[in-house]
Simulated assay, not measured.
Amino acid sequence: MTSASQQPAFSASLDGAHTMSLDNYIFPTDRLKTSLSDPTKTPLVLVSCGSFSPPTNLHLRMFEEAADFCEFETNYEVLGGFFSPVGDAYKKAGLAPAQHRINMTRIAVQDSSKWIGVDPWEPLHKEYLPTVKVLDHFDHELNNVLGGAQTADGEKKRIHVALLAGADLIQTMSAPGLWAQEDLNRILGHYGAFILERSGTDIDDALLTLQQFRDNIRVIPQLIQNDVSSTKIRLFRKRGKSIRYYIPDKVVEYIYEHNLYVDDDKKQAGKGKEKAASDMSSSAVATT
């Protein structure tokens, strides 16, 4: 954990050759498509915020499910997807240090995907950042800095940014007082969300409460049920049980190498946030 006067700095890549801080931060574009294949479609980038402690196969599968849904059910063309791990200021039980979570998400996508990346901007802040600020960051980088997506005739189209999350997120959004209303208005009203159905989670009541945003909340059916969660992985580790085949193999090896999650019960349970609304809005995937 960094001190109040110290900004976090992390390895810029898995090889650890360079260190990245907010001062030298560069938005990761190596897996981002910058041009549209179909000029009639709206360019889209999916952003998944959460703890990812550790990332699971379900976290990865969420992106694939969303990409298929966009291709067959919408007029969006997915240009890229990003994990945005929450910063250390989240102070949640079971939260491994940010550098480990950045490394694990990088490892998870390194050989398994050509279009999912990891953005360290959020955890590079020493203070907690609500989800709405993270989405605003992506919107700024993709449209103000990069200038949007290019069509075959040279036209530039604005890239739409959307939140990608599990169904349990929508349940927290519908609970009174957990999210600031102004954050919900911008997240669901402006950006919108792609929500993957989750085993044992009924989102119908939540969607009724959020009816004003219904057109911007797209629910993706989970055709093959999967209830793997980071919480269960940490519990298995604490009990000395195998975690293989629930999460990517190389992430398993990283966890064993760095002896992560064996003392999960000793971590502080308090979140350390001033407001519950800000606290909850950081965890876009409740499989934490």
Rank of each mutant, 00 (worst) to 15 (best):
A206F: 01
P176S: 14
G192T: 07
G192N: 00
G189I: 11
T231S: 15
R218H: 12
G240E: 14
L196C: 06
A180H: 15
Y256H: 13
E197V: 10
H190E: 10
K271S: 09
W179R: 12
F236A: 13
I217Q: 01
K241C: 13
W179K: 13
S174G: 14
N226M: 13
I255T: 02
V228A: 14
E274F: 02
Y191M: 03
E182V: 04
L178D: 07
Q181I: 12
I224G: 00
Q212D: 09
T209H: 10
V219K: 01
G189H: 10
I220R: 08
Y256P: 03
K232S: 09
D249T: 09
Y246E: 05
I187N: 03
D279I: 05
G240L: 15
F213T: 07
R239Y: 14
S278H: 04
G200D: 05
D204C: 04
R198G: 01
F194Y: 10
I255N: 02
P221M: 08
N259E: 15
E182P: 08
T231N: 15
N226Y: 06
A175C: 14
I217T: 01
T201G: 06
T231M: 12
Q225I: 08
A277D: 00
L260T: 00
F213Y: 11
W179M: 11
E257P: 00
Q181R: 12
N226I: 06
Q212C: 07
Q181Y: 10
A277W: 02
Y246I: 10
Y261N: 03
K238R: 15
V219P: 03
D205Q: 06
I217D: 04
K250C: 05
I243G: 03
I224Y: 08
Q222Y: 04
L235H: 11
V262R: 03
R244P: 09
L184P: 10
A206L: 00
K232E: 05
R198W: 02
I247N: 01
R218L: 14
V262F: 00
A175F: 15
I195W: 02
W179Q: 11
L178P: 07
D183A: 11
E257K: 06
T231Y: 14
L208I: 00
N259V: 09
D204F: 02
Q212M: 09
N259R: 08
T209L: 13
E182W: 05
I220F: 04
L178H: 11
L178V: 11
V228R: 09
R198N: 01
G177W: 12
A277S: 06
I217S: 04
N259P: 04
L210R: 02
Q268N: 09
W179C: 06
K273E: 03
L196H: 08
G189Q: 13
E197H: 06
L260S: 01
R234N: 08
L188V: 06
I187E: 01
K266F: 10
R198I: 01
S199N: 11
S230P: 03
V252Y: 02
